[in-house]
C-alpha cells in the first residue's frame, strides 16, 4: 500500500520535472509558431487593402486560390518539390550507403565534406551557381571547349536551373538522415539474404531497402517541406514567366498593392499540400511493410 503511494508520488514528481524541462521550448513554440499561424489563419479570412488589411470577414482569398494562375503555381511548386525529393533520394542513397560502409575515420571525413557547403552563405552559393551556369559561365565554356556544343546553352533562368540548384541545396538534408539510418543496419543481414538465395539486387530490395525506409521517410520530409515553399532559388535562377507559390506570397506581402489575406490563404494552401503529402508518404511507408509481409499467416 505504502509502496503504491510512494510510486504515485514519484511518478508525479517525474511528470512535473519533465514539464519544467519542456516549458521553455513549449513557450517558444507557442509564441513563435502556434500564435503566428493563428494570425495567418485569421488574416486569410480578412479583406485586403492597398497597404494592409481591413477587419471585415471575407472568403475572397480562398475563392481566388482556385484561379488557374494560382493553381498553376501550386502545380509547379508541387512538381518542383516532388522532383527535388525524388532526385535527392536517388542521388543521396548511394552516397549515404557508401559513407555508412566506410571505416569510422573515413566516415567522419566524408560527413564533414557533406556538411562543408553549409559553412558558406546560402545566397553566396546560389550566386556562385548563377555565375557557373550563365551564358559565358564556366559550364558553357567547358562544354564549348570540349566541342560538345557550339553556342552557349541557356541554362540560367530556366526550370532546369531551379531544379539543379534545389537538388544541390537540399541533397545534404537527404544524405544525413539516410546515413544515420543505413549506418545502423547490420550488414551481416545482407550476407544472410545472399546465403538464403537472394542475389545482390534482391537482397537490397528485400532487406536493405525496407530497413532504410525510415531514413528515406525522414529525408523526404526534410527536403519536401522546404522545397515546396521555395522562394529565393526560383527568384535568383528561375525564369520569371510564371512564379512559384513562394514567390507569389512574397510579392503579395511586400509589393503594393498588397494582399496579405491572399498571401495567408496561399501559405495555408501550401500547408494543406504538405499535410496531403505527409499522409501519402505515411501510407506508402505502411504499404511497403504490408507488401513485404504479404500477410503470411492471416488466420490469426
Amino acid at each position: 500500500m505504502i509502496d503504491r503511494t510512494l510510486e504515485k508520488i514519484e511518478e508525479k514528481r517525474k511528470n512535473r520535472l519533465s514539464w519544467i524541462l519542456a516549458a521553455p521550448v513549449l513557450l517558444w513554440l507557442v509564441i513563435l509558431f502556434l500564435i503566428p499561424y493563428l494570425i495567418v489563419i485569421i488574416y486569410s479570412f480578412l479583406t485586403p487593402t492597398i497597404y494592409d488589411i481591413q477587419f471585415a470577414f471575407s472568403l475572397e482569398s480562398f475563392k481566388r486560390l482556385v484561379d488557374p494562375i494560382y493553381l498553376r503555381s501550386f502545380y509547379i511548386s508541387f512538381r518542383l518539390a516532388v522532383v527535388t525529393t525524388i532526385a535527392c533520394i536517388f542521388l543521396g542513397y548511394p552516397v549515404a550507403y557508401y559513407i555508412a560502409r566506410k571505416t569510422e575515420k573515413v566516415k567522419n571525413i566524408l560527413l564533414l565534406l557533406i556538411i562543408i557547403p553549409f559553412w558558406t552563405n546560402f545566397i553566396i552559393r546560389i550566386f556562385a551557381w548563377r555565375i557557373f551556369i550563365s551564358a559565358n559561365g564556366l559550364l558553357n565554356e567547358l562544354l564549348m571547349f570540349a566541342g560538345i556544343i557550339d553556342d552557349p546553352l541557356r541554362i540560367l533562368r530556366t526550370d532546369l536551373a531551379v531544379t539543379m540548384v534545389m537538388i544541390y541545396v537540399y541533397l545534404p538534408y537527404m544524405i544525413l538522415p539516410l546515413y544515420a539510418n543505413i549506418e545502423k543496419i547490420d550488414f551481416t543481414l545482407i550476407e544472410a539474404a545472399m546465403d538464403l538465395g537472394a542475389n545482390r539486387l534482391k537482397s537490397f530490395l528485400k532487406v536493405t531497402l525496407p530497413l532504410s525506409k525510415e531514413g528515406i521517410f525522414a529525408g523526404s520530409i526534410l527536403v519536401f517541406i522546404p522545397a515546396l515553399g521555395a522562394y529565393i532559388i526560383p527568384q535568383l535562377v528561375g525564369n520569371q514567366d510564371y512564379l512559384y507559390v513562394g514567390q507569389i506570397i512574397a510579392y503579395k506581402i511586400k509589393s503594393i498593392p498588397r494582399n496579405w489575406p491572399l498571401a495567408s490563404a496561399l501559405s495555408l494552401g501550401l500547408l494543406v499540400l504538405v499535410i496531403v503529402m505527409l499522409i501519402l508518404l505515411y501510407w506508402f511507408y505502411k504499404r511497403v511493410i504490408k507488401k513485404e509481409n504479404k500477410l503470411f499467416f492471416n488466420e490469426k
Binding site: D186, T188, E191, D195, L196, F296
Partner: peptide
C-alpha cells in the same frame, strides 16, 4: 556466389531480419 550454392549458414548473431516475423524469416 553464395546465392548459387546449396549451402546455408547459421550466423553467430543469427542475423534474423528484424523487419520480418518469425514465419516470414523462415519463408525467405
Amino acid at each position: 556466389p553464395p546465392y548459387k550454392r546449396q549451402v546455408n549458414t547459421i550466423f553467430q548473431n543469427y542475423s534474423l531480419f528484424p523487419h520480418k516475423t518469425v514465419s516470414e524469416n523462415v519463408a525467405f
